[in-house]
Nucleic acid binder design. Structure first.
Lengths: 218, 218
DNA sequence: GACTTTGGTTACTCGGGCGTAACCTTACGC
DNA sequence: GCGTAAGGTTACGCCCGAGTAACCAAAGTC
């Protein structure tokens, strides 16, 4: 009977840092599928292969756990985008790289995306977190637009800029949703499409102009 | 004591149709503030000025109640848009009127908007309803684009069209959110901005072109 | 003026799920 | 080798909220 100790060497007793990531993985998965309220701590714990009190011990209450998810996924996404869109590039190049990185992220982390944008909206405790992230995004985009405009000697009111940035971000999020719902779709291609819609705009598109990525896909 | 009967002539005993609307009003309000799960039937009933069993008697379970909200608000919105954008108008005119009607609706029914787009997304039981509505919208927009393109002798793949329509719808929804969060903002002006972003596109905007509404605001 | 339908209420049941108390056990420091 | 902390568990308390049973009263109806 004492031999049972080594009979199942399924490595239990993992260090905290590892378990925390497993829990966050499980939480993101369950939250994305069920939504915040419908998700149960029991299911998350089970999915993480651990018992519930451990989740409470490491990540705290359900709300705190959700916020932790939000932070991890949000940071990952922001870093992916910021890392791709170096600020010293020309505007269209930056936009293109940013979009590529963004759609790449969504394609690779569909659950994270769902948590971030489909669940967090709505429930008050998290609306703030989400809004802040979104605001940063909008700010960056607005900054890019402003920069490009000034380069051409033009200038536009702040609100105007913000609204256009909002529209762009919204359009991009919408396509991200589309991508998340079409597993067969190609993130790269989606990014190209968004670039067309954003940079040239519907009006230009109607006249037959087409923006092409600087590095043609292999 | 018996005199109490007429002591408070606060008109109770209203006909069913009236009460149902009051209940739906309350439900939309509470759902939009709390979200589906966090909203309680008790609060909805109280807000409607009626007791809970009446809500069950008239509108059924919580899910059915939510779907009823979705239907009422969705129908209202669709009718507002469809009524404004007659199909025999030129494309840009249709788009403009549709946008005007849409932002007008959101401005006037901020709660309804919140229920429709901020709450319904996420929870599975309603994702279908919402997706269907959205799909109808996307279809309409795609149809408009296709029409305009063919008029200029051009043609574009179906997926391409759908994606652009998605982006447009997404951008519009995003601005609707912005409008819902900025009570001081003017729906009309927001619609004009969206029209600029959509019809002329960022590229055109950068070159200084500006689309102006056919009827200048008073 | 009795009979029924419609509008309305109070007061419960009952289940699910968050959060915890109490307890076990493997590793590591010394 | 032994204390102690870190990793882990089972089993429960408890509250909240969906849904209901049972009952009441004002309006129509004939």
């Amino acid at each position: 009977m004492l031999a049972r100790v080594s009979s199942t060497p399924t490595f239990k007793r993992l260090p905290r840092a590892v378990r925390e990531q497993q829990m966050l993985d499980a939480a993101v998965k369950v939250f994305s599928r069920r939504g915040f309220h419908a998700a149960s701590m029991d299911e998350i714990a089970e999915d993480a292969g651990i018992s519930k009190p451990m989740v409470y011990a490491y990540l705290g209450t359900k709300e705190e756990l959700f916020v932790a998810c939000l932070h991890r996924e949000g940071t990952r996404m922001m870093e992916a985008i910021a890392g791709a869109a170096a600020p010293d590039l020309p505007a269209d190049e930056r936009l293109w790289r940013g979009l590529r990185a963004f759609f790449g992220f969504v394609g690779a982390h569909r659950d994270g995306w769902a948590v971030l944008y489909r669940q967090a909206r709505g429930s008050q405790p998290f609306a703030g977190e989400l809004a802040a992230m979104r605001a940063r995004l909008v700010e960056v985009v607005a900054g890019m637009l402003d920069h490009a405009l000034r380069a051409e000697g033009r200038e536009v009111g702040e609100t105007e800029l913000e609204v256009v940035a909002y529209a762009l971000v919204g359009a991009t999020e919408s396509l991200a949703d589309w991508l998340a719902d079409h597993p067969e779709a190609d993130p790269e291609k989606t990014a190209t499409r968004m670039m067309n819609a954003a940079w040239l705009g519907a009006g230009q598109l109607l006249r037959g102009a087409t923006w092409r990525p600087p590095t043609p896909p292999a």
